[in-house]
Design a protein around this nucleic acid. Structure first.
Length: 239
DNA sequence: AGGGTAATAT
DNA sequence: TATATTACCC
């Protein structure tokens, strides 16, 4: 791997109730030059996070089916600390994945994880930080600078969303593209808007108002709403 | 006039 | 297939 442009030292916290798999994860992550902390239960992990603010850059959490503790962690961690969280599970059905993504997960990986996947997870940290310089985590400066070029390249496909705040798309304008692309991020905001309105009130104009995305049109929302049931979006009732 | 949505087009 | 546009309705 590229020594010069690698964000070595990224602090990753892994939570999984399977101790042997925790060991596997630790080895894989260390091979990626990350700094690894592991916990086999949610309570201790949360305690660590609360007691060591600003010392975790990324969380990888098992799904813990069926207690769904991971969902609680996800919501609490993302809202209070803004730490990007990756969910991993051996079960990857669409509704489950969608539920976690809509609740703020940065990614959803299927076990067993390949090292190639772990090599790329650091990107989530930078994606979260784009457009939020003022509250930048205390991630090492050299990592920040050395990684910026590769981060920019890695997120090039999301360039139309460069005006993101805290992972929220606020503008979709991209002169290189003639057609809007509904990225997962944008899609997530759409779903959040639809869910906050009920099935009754979820009409294009109101969805658009709630999404607050510049240059997004009512027609585009309407088109997406029409296509949505086919894509299996949770909680959408067909009329 | 504005807007929802089914149908159709690209 | 995904997104845009049109047609028709309220």
């Amino acid at each position: 791997m590229d020594q010069e442009l690698w964000p070595s030292g990224l602090r990753v916290l892994v939570i999984d109730n399977n101790i042997s798999y925790l060991k596997v994860m630790e080895e894989l992550l260390i091979k990626c030059s990350y700094k690894v902390t592991t916990y086999n239960n949610v309570r201790e992990a949360m305690s660590f996070i609360y007691g060591n603010e600003q010392t975790v850059d990324l969380i990888i959490c098992d799904l813990f089916f069926p207690t769904e503790d991971s969902l609680l962690i996800l919501q609490e961690v993302t809202s209070k600390f803004g730490i990007p969280t990756v969910i991993m599970s051996s079960n990857g059905d669409t509704s489950t994945v969608m539920k976690y993504i809509t609740n703020g997960a940065s990614d959803f990986l299927i076990k067993p994880l390949r090292i190639e996947e772990l090599k790329n997870i650091w990107q989530h940290v930078f994606r979260k930080q784009i457009g939020a310089e003022h509250r930048k985590c205390n991630i090492a400066q050299h990592i920040d600078q050395l990684s910026y070029r590769t981060t920019t390249e890695a997120t090039a496909t999301l360039d139309s969303e460069i005006r993101e705040n805290n992972g929220t798309v606020t503008d979709i304008l991209d002169l290189r593209k003639s057609r809007l692309i509904w990225t997962m991020q944008l899609h997530r905001q759409f779903i959040a808007a639809v869910n906050s309105l009920g099935p009754e009130k979820a009409v294009p104009k109101k969805i658009l108002e709630i999404m607050k995305v510049k240059h997004l049109t009512r027609e585009q929302v309407a088109s997406h709403l029409q296509a949505s049931p086919k894509k299996f979006i949770p909680n959408i009732v067909q009329r």
